[in-house]
Structure formats: C-alpha cells, structure tokens
Design a protein around this nucleic acid. Structure first.
Lengths: 111, 111
DNA sequence: CAATATACCTTGTAATACAAAGTATAAAAT
DNA sequence: ATTTTATACTTTGTATTACAAGGTATATTG
C-alpha cells in the first residue's frame, strides 16, 4: 500500500527489458543499470524482479541466453541475453497496447 | 498471458476513478461509462473490477457514498460516491508517481 | 584485509484486474 | 405483452507481477 509506483510498473518492466535487448544483447545486471540510467532514475528495478522476468521471457522463447567472457581483466563469464524474432514481435505488440492505454489515460487526465 | 493491457492498467484505474470523482460526484456504473467515453474507448473496465476498488477506496476514507434518487422517470436510487479531502491528496500523490514512471518509460522508449 | 559492488539465483508475499457467477430493476425490441 | 438487453450493484476465486528477503560467489576499492 502507498507504493503506487510498484503498481504502475506492472507490465512496463517487461516492455523496457525487451526494448533494451531489441537494441543490443545484454547481461542481466546491465539491464538493471541501463533502466536506471536511461530513465534518469525514474525507474529502478530490483534484481529479484529482473531475473524471474528473464526466465519467463526465455521460457516463452522471446529471448535466449549465452555465456560470454568479456575481453579485459575480468575472468568470470556473464550471462548475455539476446532477443528472438518472436521477441521482437512481442515487443511491438506490447508497445502498441502500452501506447493505447497511455493515450487513454492522457485523455482522461486532461480536460 | 498475452493480455498486456490488463497489466498496464494496474494502478491507473484507481487513478482515473479518483480523477473523475475529483471533478464531480458519480455513481459506480457511471464511472465505467465515463472511463470508456473519455478515453475514446482505449480503456474499458469491468464492473467486477470497479466495485471492489470503490469499496477499498471507501475503507481507506478516500471516498464516501450516499444514495440518491435522481429526479425524473427512474425510481431506483443510485449509489453516489464523493471524494474526500484525503482522497484529493491521494490523487495528487498518485498522479505525481504516475507521471514520473511515465516520464521514465518515455525516455527509455525513445533514442 | 575488510568493505563494497558486481552478478546471479530462489521462495514467499501483497496488490490488483478480471472472470464468472449472482440479484434486481428499467428500457427497448419483437 | 413478452422477451431481450441495458442498467446498477455485489461477491468469490484466479492469474499475474514486482518486490522483500534471503542466498552464493567473484571482483574491485579503500
């Protein structure tokens, strides 16, 4: 209760994840940082929120993963995610619905 | 699954209800119609969704109800809802958070 | 070497829109 | 007149989702 943002985020986090992966492959932790950064800290998500979404998207074949050790100092590999064709379609569909709801709200809030 | 709109609506329905009651007292069924109409049918809500929200808002003292029989032909009274001072504050707070999330999403989706 | 950040994972919980049922009256259609 | 549809309100159960709160392990910084 009182945490409106938590409710307003429902659905949109998946949308933003797909969007970021649409642009380029990324590992989980990076997605969290990107969402903060690109939204000017208006949207923050927890790792306990992100990973289950990634697994769900993977189960539904919207994304797929591969381990990659980045060149440079660090030795530990990171789990990268890549969006699939189906994932791109999913993103387009979600975006359409999001924009519609958004448009509807805007109309109600102004007058 | 596949029903994105249902998720995107989370939280915003309460926001729109408070907004409509902010403008003027209304009975439940009227709110459903107003939301459809003012959003150009982009947002539709079910009666089974609306009423529980109204009861919740009432429990939290954000709105209050009174029965009123409208002048004219119909005899059956309708249950009108009125926003309270606390409800107005609630609306302002929710709106602020909604706009922030919205701004964040916008930033992520463009680039 | 201690503390913090990075990176990933899991279980349980609270919140919410809706489906699907119900009751009852008013208006419209046949 | 009678059937159908719309109005108006109510309730129970369900699916989804973000997060809290715990965990493991490595890398970096003070």
């Amino acid at each position: 209760m009182q945490d409106f943002k938590k409710q307003f985020k429902k659905g949109v986090i998946e949308l933003t994840i797909l969007r970021l992966l649409y642009e380029q492959d990324q590992y989980g932790y990076s997605i969290i940082q990107q969402i903060s950064k690109r939204s000017d800290n208006y949207i923050e998500i927890k790792d306990g929120t992100l990973y289950p979404i990634l697994y769900r998207l993977e189960d539904n074949k919207f994304i797929e993963n591969y381990w990659k050790t980045d060149i440079g100092s660090r030795s530990k590999p990171r789990k990268y995610y890549k969006i699939t064709i189906a994932g791109r379609l999913r993103y387009e569909e979600m975006l359409k619905d999001y924009l519609e709801i958004n448009e509807g709200i805007k109309k109600i809030l102004k007058s």
